[in-house]
Each structure stands twice: as structure tokens, then as C-alpha cells.
């Protein structure tokens, strides 16, 4: 079974630390800033970033969980209807600076759907995108991340798997052929 570790727990820890410091550099005390993690997998990264930030400073942004299922553009174009997840946005994003957070940036379509879904909660001042893994050269829409954990060269048939465990985690690159066997 070919699965390649592309980010081991110590390196993932370093990467998260770097992302936190980049966010602090740009957002300072997170005044008027909110984090929005995308369901289903971006919410773990969003929560992890906030707990890492808590070790560095006292001021933290509120975190929302946004489900984009009903805003996707492939509904009725795939075999199964997409199952929705919970949306928990305990704030309005009107006049806020939003950091959208997802684990993997692939085609860019989830992010497009997220931009649509966010409109239901107001007009933000600005939106930036943070991803842990940027799969390069696979974009189908003109969308790029503002903060990137790691950039990887992949082909479309591969999968990126982000595993979160208590206080650590790792990132794998899998070959699709594994899934069938």
C-alpha cells in the first residue's frame, strides 16, 4: 500500500506555529476578526489554530463552522446527494475581517461555494484563505490561498489525507489505486 507521509507530527506542529505567527503579524490582537472553518474537515484546523494561538497570546478570534453543502455546484451532477453538516456561526460577519480555513485546497470549488454561503451572514470587510495543504496545478477556478501550510505537487487521482489526533496530527499523500484494492 503506497501512502507517503508528507507532514509528520513534529513538522505539522512547526507549520501550525508558523501559520499562527503569520496570522498574528497581519491581524495583531484579532480585533474585528473571525475564523470560519469549512465543514467537514476545515473545522479541526480552525480549532487547532485557535488553541495554538492561545499559547501565544490572550486575544483570540471567535470561530465559526460553515457548511457549504447546499452551495456546491455539483449537486445532481454526482451519484449521491451530498450529506450536509452542521453550520455553527455564532456571529454576523458584517464589517469583520474573515479568515476562511480549510485543510486542503484542490479545485477551488469548495472555496467558491464558501464565499457564496458566507453571504448569508453579512458583508465582510475582507476575506483571506488559509489552507494546510495546497495541491498545486489542480485548480479549476481562479482561487489561491493567502496562507499555506505546505505546497505539494499531486496528480488528480491522488488524495491528500489530513489526520488529527490529540495535540498532534499528520498529512498523508495516497494513491487512488489503494482505495480500490
Amino acid at each position: 500500500m503506497s501512502r507517503r507521509l508528507i507532514l509528520d507530527p513534529p513538522r505539522l506542529h512547526l507549520t501550525l506555529q508558523r501559520l499562527c505567527r503569520q496570522l498574528i503579524e497581519n491581524y495583531g490582537d484579532f480585533q474585528d476578526t473571525v475564523f470560519v472553518g469549512l465543514q467537514p474537515r476545515g473545522i479541526y484546523l480552525a480549532d487547532r489554530l485557535v488553541s495554538s494561538l492561545a499559547e501565544l497570546q490572550n486575544q483570540l478570534p471567535p470561530v465559526g463552522h460553515l457548511d457549504i453543502t447546499f452551495f456546491r455546484d455539483d449537486f445532481r451532477r454526482r451519484q449521491e446527494p451530498l450529506k450536509a453538516n452542521e453550520t455553527r456561526m455564532p456571529f454576523i460577519i458584517e464589517n469583520k475581517r474573515v479568515v476562511l480555513i480549510d485543510d486542503v485546497l484542490f479545485t477551488g470549488r469548495s472555496v467558491r461555494a464558501a464565499l457564496d454561503a458566507m453571504a448569508a451572514y453579512g458583508r465582510p470587510v475582507s476575506v483571506e484563505l488559509l489552507v494546510l495543504v495546497d495541491r498545486m496545478h489542480t485548480r479549476e477556478l481562479p482561487i489561491e490561498a493567502s496562507y499555506t501550510g505546505i505546497k505539494v505537487n499531486t496528480i488528480a487521482s491522488q488524495r491528500v489525507l489530513v489526520e488529527w489526533e490529540e495535540n498532534q496530527g499528520q498529512v498523508w499523500l495516497l494513491d487512488q489505486t489503494d482505495k480500490k484494492s
Binding site: N85, D103, R135, A156, E163
Partner: peptide, 17 residues
């Protein structure tokens, strides 16, 4: 793609998927 649940997914919608 790129968003699959895997081992070590302690948190989340327990078994709902």
C-alpha cells in the same frame, strides 16, 4: 477528494458518516 475521513478522527460526527 482530498477530504476523506481516516483513522485518528477522534472528533466529529461520531459514526454518522
Amino acid at each position: 477528494m482530498g477530504r476523506e475521513s481516516g483513522p485518528g478522527m477522534a472528533i466529529g460526527s461520531n459514526g454518522q458518516e
